[in-house]
Amino acid sequence: MSIQHFRVALIPFFAAFCLPVFAHPETLVKVKDAEDQLGARVGYIELDLNSGKILESFRPEERFPMMSTFKVLLCGAVLSRVDAGQEQLGRRIHYSQNDLVEYSPVTEKHLTDGMTVRELCSAAITMSDNTAANLLLTTIGGPKELTAFLHNMGDHVTRLDRWEPELNEAIPNDERDTTMPAAMATTLRKLLTGELLTLASRQQLIDWMEADKVAGPLLRSALPAGWFIADKSGAGERGSRGIIAALGPDGKPSRIVVIYTTGSQATMDERNRQIAEIGASLIKHW
């Protein structure tokens, strides 16, 4: 067993022997301040990774656009098919120029040779490549099948209805392509620590998230040296922004954090800054 596999296998073990965790309302004060600064709703939840206990939450059962955070769930569904012998990570998928959609920095470079399922998941999570996500959605049967996968996990809230990039439209009061912070946090925890996926697939999923290259201005910008984070960000229309993450000190994750916002007129930089400040408060009061 590799060191990384050992780390993920012992996530519940280490967490069980940690000192009790206590909620700190100071972080919620910052979440509410972010709402004021952005002029928009902000949803927040913080779960203990081992027990699933909610440590703090704000608007945990209000719907927010998922945006690209759905790509972690998508690759979880792909990995479940791999575990069941219905898919192979090494299978190569070929596609054409007509398949390319807006923001496809990886797939646009491989029109000639195609990409493997493993490479597509890596591109979808680490670079948020939209064509990679659409190609992977095709392998599982489309958005409705991802929703069905989530329902089978016990998540009857999260739903995907459309493809990239239309799913980022974020129309107010439109339930399409949305989740709730509580539902997303619980589902992410199941994917990373539950028995739904094999140990190898859980490790692969967290490795992809740990290698995320496009979430630097968010929670990662607030992390002290030595902290662990595996995350996936999302951005959408109407001032929408979000991030889902597993993080913790001492090089291992111990909490799940989900943050979503929508309806702001603020710039992307300002949305990023507010999420980073929430992260800084979380870490300060850990």
Rank of each mutant, 00 (worst) to 15 (best):
P12T: 12
E46R: 04
V31G: 02
V21S: 10
Y95W: 10
M115F: 04
V72R: 00
E108T: 09
T69G: 02
G76T: 07
A84I: 12
L100R: 04
N130I: 01
E26D: 09
L197K: 06
L79K: 00
G234P: 00
P224Q: 06
D212K: 04
G76A: 13
S68C: 01
F14G: 07
D161V: 07
A34K: 04
A148T: 14
L38S: 08
G43W: 00
F22D: 07
P165V: 09
H110Y: 13
N168W: 03
M180Y: 14
I229E: 02
A235D: 02
V157I: 12
Y103H: 08
A200G: 14
G251A: 12
R202H: 08
A148Y: 13
T158C: 03
D177F: 01
L223V: 13
E56R: 09
Q97W: 11
G279V: 05
L192Y: 06
D129C: 01
G251E: 11
L135K: 05
D113V: 09
K53G: 11
G251H: 14
V21M: 05
A235L: 05
L223W: 03
T261E: 06
N168P: 02
N272T: 08
W163M: 13
Y260H: 01
A16D: 03
V82K: 06
R271A: 10
L197S: 05
E237A: 15
L47K: 04
P249H: 07
P165K: 08
H94P: 09
I45D: 02
I229R: 01
S233L: 02
M184V: 09
R255Y: 02
E164D: 01
G248N: 03
T193F: 10
G142M: 02
F149W: 14
T267G: 14
D212G: 06
T69W: 00
A34T: 11
H151W: 15
E61F: 10
R202G: 07
A276G: 09
G248L: 00
V42S: 03
K109S: 14
M127N: 08
S2Y: 12
G226C: 09
N98H: 14
Y260V: 06
R189V: 09
T187I: 08
C75G: 09
A123N: 05
H94D: 11
L10Q: 06
L188N: 02
A133D: 00
P65F: 03
A230Q: 02
G90M: 13
L196H: 15
G85I: 04
S233K: 01
P25W: 10
I140Q: 06
C121V: 03
N50I: 10
S104N: 05
Q204D: 09
F14R: 01
G216M: 10
P20K: 14
H110S: 08
Q203T: 12
L136C: 04
G226D: 11
G239K: 02
K32G: 09
T186I: 15
L111T: 12
G142K: 04
Y95D: 01
G234A: 10
L167K: 02
L192S: 05
P172V: 12
K144V: 12
G85R: 10
R92Y: 10
K252M: 13
T186K: 13
L191F: 12
G52L: 05
G251K: 14
T193H: 14
G90V: 12
V31C: 14
K53Y: 13
K232Y: 00
T179I: 01
L223R: 05
Q203D: 11
L49M: 15
G141I: 05
L223F: 05
V21I: 08
L137F: 09
R220H: 04
I243P: 00
R202D: 03
F14T: 10
G76D: 01
I244E: 01
R118P: 04
I283R: 06
R92P: 08
I243M: 06
I11S: 07
L47Q: 07
T131I: 01
Q97F: 15
T147W: 04
P25R: 08
S51N: 10
S51R: 07
G251N: 15
L135D: 01
I45T: 12
T267E: 11
K53H: 13
E270G: 08
A245E: 00
F13V: 11
G251I: 07
S104G: 06
N272V: 04
P253F: 09
A84R: 12
I140Y: 08
Q86P: 05
E210C: 12
T179E: 00
Q265D: 12
H156N: 14
Q88E: 13
S96H: 11
M209E: 00
N98F: 15
I278H: 00
V72C: 07
Q265V: 12
V31L: 11
P172A: 13
P249S: 08
T158Y: 01
E119W: 02
R159E: 06
A132R: 00
D269L: 11
Q97T: 13
R59M: 04
A84E: 12
T261Q: 07
E87S: 06
K190L: 10
I275V: 12
S57R: 11
Q274Y: 10
P181A: 07
A133R: 00
E210P: 00
E277M: 10
G76V: 05
W163H: 09
S254F: 08
G194A: 12
S104R: 03
G114C: 04
H5W: 05
G239N: 05
W227G: 02
A266Q: 11
Q88G: 10
L218E: 02
M127H: 08
L28N: 07
L100Q: 05
A222Y: 09
H151Y: 14
K32Y: 10
R41D: 07
K190Q: 12
S221Q: 12
D212Y: 03
A266L: 15
D269W: 10
R271Q: 10
G142C: 04
A23P: 08
L79N: 02
L89V: 06
R159T: 10
V72N: 01
Y44D: 01
E270D: 14
A9K: 12
P12W: 12
Q4R: 10
I54H: 12
E102A: 13
L247H: 01
F228I: 08
S68I: 00
M115Q: 07
D177M: 01
C75T: 12
L167P: 04
P143W: 02
R59G: 04
I11E: 03
T158M: 03
I243T: 04
I206M: 14
Q37W: 13
L89D: 05
F58A: 09
R92T: 11
L196K: 15
F6G: 06
Q265A: 15
V8S: 15
A246W: 06
M209T: 02
S240D: 05
D36K: 15
S254P: 07
E119L: 03
A124I: 05
R189M: 10
C18Y: 06
E277V: 12
G141R: 06
K71R: 01
V29D: 13
S254N: 13
I140L: 10
E145W: 09
V214E: 05
C18I: 01
D36S: 13
S281Y: 15
G194K: 09
T112K: 15
D113I: 08
S104A: 08
F149S: 07
I171A: 15
D83Q: 09
P105F: 05
E26L: 15
I283F: 11
T158D: 01
T112W: 15
S57N: 09
A170M: 07
E237V: 10
R92L: 12
R7W: 08
V31N: 02
L55R: 09
T27F: 04
I3C: 11
N168H: 05
E277H: 08
I256G: 02
R162W: 02
I275K: 00
E102R: 10
V257T: 06
I243G: 01
I275Y: 05
D212P: 05
V257K: 00
L111Y: 09
L137K: 01
A266P: 04
A225I: 14
R91S: 07
A280G: 12
T112E: 15
D99M: 12
P105H: 06
Y103M: 06
V157P: 02
M66A: 07
I125H: 03
G114A: 05
L160W: 02
P65A: 06
I45P: 00
T178G: 03
A170I: 09
K232E: 00
L191T: 06
S281M: 11
R273A: 10
F64V: 04
V72L: 05
S281T: 13
A124Q: 02
Q204H: 11
I3D: 08
G263I: 04
F13N: 03
L49E: 04
I45R: 03
R162H: 10
F228L: 06
I140C: 06
L160Q: 07
